[in-house]
Design a protein around this nucleic acid. Structure first.
Length: 270
DNA sequence: CCCGGAACCTGAAGGC
DNA sequence: TGCCTTCAGGTTCCGG
């Protein structure tokens, strides 16, 4: 599932191939992925637009276009963007055609991914919380915001309006690295614990970016390669296996309908 | 505002 | 073998 490190990798690897190119057209095989505007307005507005930049905010990818438009993509759970020419891969839901014959294939078996063309990217991105890797995200800000939340810390880390870009895998990894039980009420964390959590969130995300993301299930990089971050996972998707620190079997419990993996000994409930 | 649960989807995996 | 159920989870929407 693409989370911040996966989307960051896609952005970095796609960017050199597409910036400066012009979109000759977009093919939609699954129209419901287009959030706005309606297809009749979408096609004439995007065709012929030059791609002037590509950026990431949270798990969103933002294609900056000439003419004051932005194309915003979200890969949700099973999406990937594959770059190339030739026949579209299986499960391709949209194709962004470039003027030099190359394409961006939006592959998405689960059909959860979205595209939207907007004048102002902030209309979509304004509800996101801080970027965890930005300098303005400090331990003090994290502590103050956690104080206002009594939901399980795991659920709060997944709230994109609280902090942007963390998904199920990296939330589990960060909580393990900080030794914090995922069900702990967010407002029960001590200043020391929050300082530690703040540090490991950054470390876990930064290391995953260095490994080009985690290829569990359907994540691929634009060239079709996988990432290797999952090979460094301590607890995520490792239910029943021994904790790498203490050998206790890793537990899996549902929190907000999502599988949460943790070590009951290294991450005590109290 | 805050919280929890359903809905959106489809392939994979497990049960009988 | 084959049908059926369950699981996977990012986001949005809805109800309390």
């Amino acid at each position: 599932m693409p989370e911040l490190p996966e989307v960051e990798t896609i952005k970095e690897e796609l960017l050199p191939h597409i910036v400066g190119r012009t979109i000759s057209g977009v093919t939609l095989f699954w129209e419901r992925m287009l959030r706005q505007p309606l297809p009749a307005e979408f096609h004439p507005r995007i065709s012929g637009q030059k791609i002037t930049g590509l950026s990431r905010r949270g798990k969103y990818l933002i294609f900056q276009l000439g003419g004051g438009n932005c194309l915003i993509a979200h890969l949700r759970m099973s999406g990937s963007l594959l770059f190339g020419r030739g026949l579209p891969p299986e499960y391709t839901r949209a194709i962004i055609h470039l003027d030099n014959g190359n394409n961006i294939f939006f592959r998405d078996p689960r059909k959860f991914g979205t595209l939207q063309l907007v004048k102002d990217s902030d209309s979509v991105l304004c509800k996101l919380g801080p970027e965890p890797l930005s300098p303005s995200f400090t331990p003090e800000i994290l502590y103050d915001s956690l104080k206002k939340r009594k939901a399980p810390i795991k659920a709060v880390l997944l709230d994109q309006g609280f902090i942007a870009g963390i998904g199920n895998m990296y939330a589990d990894e960060a909580l393990f690295a900080a030794g914090i039980h995922p069900l702990r009420p967010a407002n029960s964390l001590s200043r020391t614990e929050v300082k530690s959590l703040h540090r490991v969130i950054r470390e876990v995300l930064q290391e995953a970016i260095s490994s080009k993301g985690a290829s569990v299930s359907t994540y691929f990089r634009p060239g079709g390669e996988t990432g290797t971050a999952h090979s460094q996972f301590q607890v995520a998707h490792r239910g029943g296996k021994p904790c790498p620190v203490c050998d206790t079997p890793i537990q899996r419990i549902p929190i907000r309908q999502r599988g949460s993996y943790f070590c009951p000994k290294c991450q005590p409930e109290a």
